[in-house]
């Protein structure tokens, strides 16, 4: 079961990047809209250097991006990026399609066998 047995490398990286409560906290907060690194650190009780490391991990994986604030170009804000989440959704859809085929095959097998008895 190829998609079922192993997530694609990108998805693995996504899950690894999210394997940390602070980074999951960042994603949760960014669901409500873009935020500055300092705000995120404060909200999650992390030191600014620690937050900066977490944001680097998320950014490298493409889960968040850093942009200028629309009203103040000098202020940098972080926002969520949809692509990795879409990838996760596609992978789940592929796994579901595989199991649908499998269960159809199982149902056909049972019908064949029950017909014989």
């Amino acid at each position: 079961m190829t998609p079922a047995g192993a997530a694609p490398a990108g998805l693995d990286a996504t899950l690894r990047a999210l394997a940390d409560p602070t980074r999951r906290g960042v994603v949760d907060l960014l669901r409500d809209g873009p935020r500055r690194a300092g705000d995120l650190a404060l909200a999650l009780g992390a030191t600014p250097p620690a937050m900066s490391r977490h944001l680097r991990v998320l950014r490298r994986r493409g889960l968040v991006s850093e942009r200028s604030h629309p009203d103040a170009a000098r202020v940098r804000v972080y926002r969520l990026e949809p692509a990795p989440f879409a990838e996760l959704g596609r992978w789940l859809a592929a796994v579901e399609a595989l199991w649908s085929e499998q269960l159809e095959s199982f149902a056909a097998h049972v019908q064949r066998r029950e017909g014989q008895t």
């Binding site: 789940l92 796994v95 649908s100 269960l103 199982f106 149902a107 049972v110 019908q111």
Partner: peptide
Amino acid sequence: VVVRTRVRG
């Protein structure tokens, strides 16, 4: 993922 079917018996 959750997938369902129904079989006789």
